Simulated scan of single mutants.
Amino acid sequence: MHDELPSGIQKVIDSLRLNTSSDFCGLACLSGTMLRWKYTSGASNERVKRMEMRPGQDLVGTALRTGRTVLTDVQSTGEHIPGRCPLMLAERLVCAIAVPVFQDGSVPGAVLLVGSRLPCTFSPEKIRQAEQVAIQLESKVYG
């Protein structure tokens, strides 16, 4: 994957944040063994774009590792504690949806994150929107 991604991605990220009434939306891409936030919308500071993370046991790492959508909101009772995810901690996100973005339809190489700074419950429609955008981003990121 190239370091410079097509500029149409920023528009898609901005649009998803607005359409889901979320506080933050971002796309993290694998670069070697590290995840970097290439595109963000609604970030409270520029520090996020310089952030490098090893995919771990947090929400983002779990989505990347399992290839499945993972979420944490007021209804979920999983192991995904917002404080364990560096991005969620930096952006003060308490609820989020992490959706893998697949390379060649088989291996996740990026993660799309939609988050809220206030406690919320994600509707099936919001989850579906995030998953549809992740599919749309496959061709933009890897095409």
Results as ranks from 00 to 15, higher is better:
Glu79His: 11
Gly61Asn: 03
Gln57Thr: 06
Met53Lys: 08
Gln75Cys: 09
Ala96Lys: 03
Pro55Ile: 02
Leu18Asn: 11
Ser41Leu: 08
Glu79Gly: 04
Leu87Ala: 11
Val94Glu: 13
Leu93His: 07
Arg47Glu: 15
Lys49Gly: 05
Pro82Ile: 09
Val94Gln: 11
Cys95Tyr: 02
Leu71Gln: 10
Pro55Trp: 02
Pro100Met: 05
Gln57Ala: 03
Gln75Ser: 15
Arg50Trp: 08
Gln75Gly: 11
Leu30Phe: 06
Val48Arg: 03
Ser21Thr: 13
Glu91Asp: 02
Ile97Val: 15
Thr72Asp: 12
Ala43Cys: 12
Ser21Pro: 00
Gly42Glu: 10
Lys38Asn: 08
Ala28Thr: 13
Thr77Phe: 13
Leu18Lys: 13
Glu46Val: 09
Leu59Pro: 00
Ala28Gln: 07
Cys95Thr: 08
Thr77Met: 11
Asn19Lys: 11
Gly42Gln: 05
Ala98Pro: 01
Thr69Cys: 14
Thr33Ser: 15
Thr62Gln: 06
Ala43Ser: 15
Leu18Met: 13
Gly83Pro: 01
Glu91Met: 11
Ala90Val: 05
Phe102Ser: 09
Glu52Val: 12
Leu89Gln: 14
Ala63Trp: 01
Thr40Gly: 10
Arg36Thr: 11
Val74Met: 14
Gly56Arg: 04
Ala43Ile: 03
Ala98Glu: 01
Arg84Tyr: 04
Gly83Asn: 11
Leu71Thr: 02
Gly32Val: 09
Val74Asp: 15
Met34Thr: 10
Ala98Asn: 01
Arg92Pro: 00
Thr69Trp: 04
Leu59Gly: 02
Arg50Val: 04
Cys95Met: 04
Asn19Glu: 15
Leu87Ile: 15
Cys85Met: 04
Cys95Leu: 06
Ser76Ala: 12
Glu52Trp: 09
Gln57Ile: 00
Trp37Tyr: 14
Ser41His: 07
Lys49Trp: 07
Val94Tyr: 06
Arg65Lys: 15
Val94Trp: 08
Pro55Cys: 03
Ala98Asp: 04
Gln103Ser: 14
Thr66Ile: 02
Arg54Gly: 02
Thr40Val: 13
Arg54Lys: 14
Gly32Met: 05
Thr69Asp: 04
Phe102Leu: 15
Leu64Val: 07
Ile81Arg: 15
